[in-house]
Design a protein around this nucleic acid. Structure first.
Lengths: 235, 235
DNA sequence: ACGTAGGCATTGTTGAACAATCCCACAAGA
DNA sequence: TCTTGTGGGATTGTTCAACAATGCCTACGT
């Protein structure tokens, strides 16, 4: 009955479902959100910074209403915080956030690892992320090591095979990058995990889920403790 | 330095952190979203219905911009779908959605169950939900049985202890209620799970995590199959 | 059956306006 | 010195009206 349901399979339009999203044009608010998201995740807007509506609308040449739609989008992604009648600020991650984030990661990532079988599939993205991290480390680009690390763990989570879970993990990854931007010694934080991630990947490829899970848990506990120490210290 | 950090503990304002949210007034857009969310989840707006901006603004006495903010909020919660230049519609859950949802539930809920110890805590909400479901069943209110079932499984997930995961599960629960509204034989669907949920709860209370997980997985597989059969059938 | 053209409804985006709220600095009082 | 009013200025919250852009539908011609 309805054109968008399942009738396409029968005719010549078979297998085009995956191309649907490429066809979707984005609204102005979404494009604005994309720009701001990039600026936040790459550290141009530091956590705590206020984004004043008038300034941004002038700089981007858009109307205030459109910008507010973009703000709301990013607030929903936890990259911005709206304080009513005071404005929007780049999110500042607290210690309780870190605790919750790592609790979520332990649940999500361990559950995902537990689904891998003897003949693991879909490890290409993880492999790519680990290689990128190692390459960035050789260049001394430790912030890029951080983003590659995030990508690696998103790839691990993706083994669970749920888009909804992946989306949550993507949001968590963005929050983590927010913390990274507040750190001074990025090398000291990221360097130990290069080999840890590589080992986890090898174990997964060998189909040794339980041991991979053990290493992953150790990594998560260690990283959580390091982040908490960082957040408690300079406060 | 900053007034909202930790200085309040010292003075007379100790222990007020928990009251912070009671003080937060909600914006108009959020309240509008609350209203629409209720109308959607209680089945007043059926899946597929278009929500026309002018009609809603007139009915609620708000401006178009504010309504569009509310729409965006609900679209982000997956209760509404925006089709560019065509309007917003109440979400219609498809078979692929159901598959993804149950994949996510298997990951989330099993991971949460696995965290319970010999002396389980925080089962009050689950107990309450099961009792409510049983009471609603005795009254023959099968739609309320459905919402209580959703609440039970949210309570299970909450054992994981992560706000972020809970939020995802809440969103999934709203999606499930959307499917329930498309069903005719709600009793036939929900009735078998009354005793299943009760048994899962008992096992959790006894601290028998592994057996609870086995039953939970069986429930999830069964419910998924039933929903898929329902969605494939009338199409 | 196919392509085209026009009309209509609806959404997308903008700009301006005004009210509500908050922050800050300064003054008054204990 | 510390606390408590009291403005003024800046910023956000919300509304309204207008116009452009888009998509759907129907009628028409081939």
């Amino acid at each position: 009955m309805r054109p968008e349901d399942g009738e396409a399979e029968a005719a010549a339009g078979a297998g085009l479902d995956a191309d649907r999203e490429r066809l979707a044009r984005t609204s102005t608010a979404e494009r604005v959100a994309d720009i701001l998201r990039d600026r936040i995740t790459d550290g141009y807007f530091r956590p705590g910074t206020q984004l004043i509506e008038e300034k941004v609308t002038d700089a981007l040449g858009i109307s205030r209403n459109t910008l507010r739609e973009a703000f709301q989008l990013l607030a929903h992604e936890r990259l911005l915080v709206r304080r009513p009648n005071r404005g929007v600020f780049v999110r500042e991650i607290t210690a309780t956030d870190v605790v919750d984030i790592y609790r979520a990661r332990r649940l999500l990532q361990c559950a995902a690892v537990r689904t891998v079988t003897r003949s693991p599939v879909g490890l290409d993205a993880a492999e790519c992320a680990v290689s990128d991290a190692e390459a960035a480390a050789r260049r001394g680009a430790w912030d890029q090591v951080g983003t590659a690390d995030v990508r690696f763990h998103q790839a691990i989570t993706a083994l669970g095979g749920s888009r909804r879970v992946d989306e949550l993990m993507r949001s968590i990854g963005a929050e983590l990058r927010l913390v990274f931007h507040t750190m001074t010694d990025t090398r000291g934080f990221h360097e130990p995990y290069l080999s840890a991630n590589r080992r986890i990947l090898d174990l997964l490829r060998a189909g040794d889920g339980p041991e991979a899970e053990r290493l992953l848990t150790a990594y998560l506990n260690d990283a959580e403790a390091a982040l908490l120490a960082h957040l408690q210290g300079p406060a």
